[in-house]
């Protein structure tokens, strides 16, 4: 009988201990609030984040192929050009030589012995001319290469600048779309007070967090109607989170920006 009592006591305690452990550790009591699902309606879509992410690379590949291009171009053109350039100096030199020959000819005639000297001098001159020619050839070649490289670099720079300008323009238009979206979202929640007269403009500086949540909203310019100002501020707070771009574009344009509200 006594052993029954201790046994029953132990069993009762064990049962409760097991049950409490099960409740405390076996059941997950912490629940996460589901993230709100939000849908914004856009009349025309800004490019999707993926395409936006991909868009910058295209300009990048272009510059890289550009440097190789000059190299193959530089090597083939010089030979023909040099050939073309080479005859010219030759002819010129020959002319000069002829003139020279014509000129110095009279003096040697009186002294036949000098003809041999003249030959040596001519040989020397020829060698000199050849060296000159070669030097000039090299110069022209170098110049040509430089010119070509410069042209290529200019081209690349121009292309880059153009791409940048285009990207900036695209981003600006995209930003405008986002801002229009935010404005529309806020405006849908603004309850314009019925006693508002005219169309006063209120400007608010909106600071956002990455992801579109509102950090702060500060009134920069009052519309003159406190009720209207308050309605706009309330609407901004209610309308968050906003649809904003990600990454650098957000940091450039959406960290903090002014928004003007004007009842039509």
């Amino acid at each position: 009988m006594n052993s029954d009592k201790t046994k029953a006591r132990a069993l009762a305690l064990a049962m409760h201990a097991v049950f409490i452990l099960l409740i405390v550790f076996g059941v997950s009591w912490q629940r996460k609030p589901p993230t709100p699902v939000q849908a914004d309606l856009w009349s025309n879509l800004p490019p999707l984040p993926q395409t936006r992410a991909v868009a910058p690379p295209p300009p990048a590949p272009e510059p890289t192929p550009a440097p190789p291009k000059p190299a193959p171009r530089v090597t083939p053109p010089p030979p023909p050009k040099v050939e073309r350039a080479a005859p010219k100096p030759d002819i010129a030199l020959k002319k000069v030589e002829k003139e020279k020959k014509a000129e110095p000819k009279p003096p040697p005639k009186p002294e036949p012995r000098k003809i041999e000297d003249d030959k040596v001098a001519r040989q020397q001159k020829e060698a000199q001319a050849r060296a000159q020619r070669e030097a000039r050839e090299r110069d022209t070649q170098r110049e040509l290469a430089e010119k070509e490289a410069k042209a290529a670099a200019d081209k690349v720079a121009a292309e880059k600048a153009a791409a940048e300008r285009a990207a900036r323009a695209a981003e600006a238009s995209e930003n405008q779309k986002y801002i229009n979206g935010i404005h529309a979202k806020v405006w849908a929640r603004v309850a314009v007070p019925p006693d508002l007269q005219g169309s006063p403009e209120a400007v608010f500086v909106v600071s956002l967090l990455p992801g579109g949540e509102l950090q702060s909203v500060v009134m920069r310019k009052s519309s003159g109607n406190p009720a209207y100002d308050a309605a706009i501020e309330r609407a901004i707070r209610q309308a968050q989170p906003f649809n904003v771009p990600t990454g650098d574009q957000f940091h450039r344009s959406f960290r903090s920006f002014p928004m003007a509200f004007r009842p039509r």
């Binding site: 069993l11 305690l13 409760h16």
Partner: peptide
Amino acid sequence: LFSWYYIFL
């Protein structure tokens, strides 16, 4: 606790 004790007993 007591009811379980008596249940077993």
